[in-house]
Design a protein around this nucleic acid. Structure first.
Lengths: 155, 155
DNA sequence: CTATATATTGATAATAGTTATCAATATCAA
DNA sequence: TTGATATTGATAACTATTATCAATATATAG
């Protein structure tokens, strides 16, 4: 069955689908229509997505796709480093596109939950210094600034 | 019944117990032996504590104290800003003393889970600048640097 | 192209952490 | 001391996530 109509692998530049396929092959896992659809829908979101939103959008396209498959696929996507998992204050996990996206930190409005992504070169520099000071090898980091945005302050 | 042997409120300087009592009174809540014990045991820990560790230590002193009371009390302590709740990568919540403790960020070993707390004045300064730039009023922040510590690297 | 080994799927049971319910009890203000 | 009501512990309920399993789809060797 040829469900891969886009035939993305003909594109010389590596994209998320190729990376995912390669990873699956490497690990002796299989490229399935469900996994393709989940990655497609995941990429159609900007910024952060939670399971609920993903599941909802998937249901619209294919109501037969089970929630367990969604969880399983996201776990693989995290393993192959295309996706990053976050756990925010409310305990719910959210997922974020990682590949070819510069690392970024988050500015979160505690009232409307609006989230802005940013980065700051000097902060990154100091992070590395701090790690060296304590003998750590830095692998990744997460910074969240919680505050109230302009709009919410007006109300 | 006078379970408050320490009579902490006679101490002129505000401490966690007074703050907690005041908060309870303000909100028309009651000062109970269970709440006192939970705060005591919470304060006896350094740095981060999770529910499990707290519950275990509480069981040693008073096996009759229910887990629901522990959750309820921690929620109040967070409300009155004596305690800060974090949710780390594994989805489990942990709690951290907040009052009279300088804010600090975390350096976490992804292998042994060892956690070091640190702060950096310039990073804090830049955080404020970033917030201003986006029109946010900064309320709190969280920074986690994930890496591998010296010991784990040797193994 | 076909056969075969095995990875994957969806449904659902199971689990873990947390919260809600409720009757008995403790607190606290008058 | 009393009475209104907040609190407690036990436990049911709930939510998010993971494990189980039989049916099915995929990849690969021939």
């Amino acid at each position: 069955m040829d469900f891969d109509n886009n035939n993305l692998s003909q594109n010389k530049m590596l994209n998320e689908f190729d990376i995912f396929k390669d990873f699956l092959q490497q690990k002796n896992l299989r490229w399935t229509p469900q996994r393709k659809m989940i990655l497609e829908i995941f990429l159609s979101f900007d910024g952060h997505v939670d399971i609920e939103s993903l599941h909802q959008k998937i249901q619209e396209q294919d109501p037969s796709l089970g929630i367990a498959t969604l969880y399983r696929t996201l776990k693989i996507l995290v393993d192959c480093e295309l996706v990053e998992a976050h756990s925010f204050h409310d305990g719910k996990k959210s997922y974020e596109r990682k590949f070819r996206v510069q690392h970024h930190d988050h500015l979160i409005c505690t009232q409307c939950e609006k989230t802005i992504e940013f980065e700051h070169a000097l902060i990154e520099k100091y992070q590395i210094e701090i790690c060296e000071e304590y003998g750590f090898t830095l692998k990744s980091h997460k910074m969240e600034l919680m505050g109230v945005c302009e709009n919410c302050r007006k109300e």
